[in-house]
């Protein structure tokens, strides 16, 4: 056996020993701990938690800035680009769910951002909508009327905080 073969053999042995050492037969050391359970993100409280109250001020739904931006050539889509709603949280008890929804009836499109709000939430709260896309072939106009609604859900009831009729502008022209 020459030096290079000895090197190869040594490497194989190292790997084999590590594999067996962490295996059920020897189990001298656990090299592969079980992945820790993912904590539920704070923004996704369960419905059962929606038993609080919210008092908010300076509720603002932007009037402009709603765009459909053309995707990369050939992707056949327009990406939604909507500004977030803002509000100042005066007080909150327990947890409530805030929802900012934008609906474009003519396109049959609706998107909404949802977030849980509790005492630990920042006072000046911003809530946007998730990234989304609309098929380019659906767009025939340069702009579309839409409704933006900010609402709060608590104790099984949904209360509208603010609503605004906005215009969605198709950037770069529709196809």
């Amino acid at each position: 056996m020459n030096s290079s073969h000895r090197t190869l053999l040594l490497t194989i042995c190292c790997i084999a020993v590590a594999t067996v050492t962490s295996g059920p037969l020897v189990h001298a050391v656990d090299l592969t701990p079980t992945e820790s359970e993912q904590l539920e993100p704070s923004g996704l409280a369960s419905v059962d938690d929606e038993a609080g109250t919210l008092v908010a001020s300076n509720i603002s739904i932007p009037d402009t800035g709603y765009h459909l931006e053309k995707g990369v050539a050939g992707s056949g889509i327009y990406k939604v680009s909507f500004p977030p709603a803002r509000l100042h949280i005066e007080s909150v008890t327990n947890t409530v769910m805030l929802t900012f929804a934008i609906e474009i009836p003519e396109l049959g499109y609706m998107t909404q951002g949802v977030s849980a709000v509790d005492a630990d939430s920042p006072r000046n709260f911003t809530l946007g909508t998730p990234e989304g896309q609309i098929e380019a072939s659906k767009l025939t106009n340069q702009s579309y009327p839409a409704t933006a609604t900010l609402s709060v859900r608590s104790n099984g009831e949904t209360r509208t905080l603010a609503t605004r009729n906005v215009t969605i502008v198709v950037e770069g022209g529709s196809q």
Partner: peptide, 24 residues
């Protein structure tokens, strides 16, 4: 393999040995 060794470590080892074989 899983009766004597750790599955993840064994598979990582296999890939690393393939890399070693490539170099060799």
């Amino acid at each position: 393999l899983t009766t004597v060794g750790d599955l993840r470590i064994g598979l990582i080892g296999l890939w690393c040995l393939s890399l070693l074989a490539t170099c060799y």
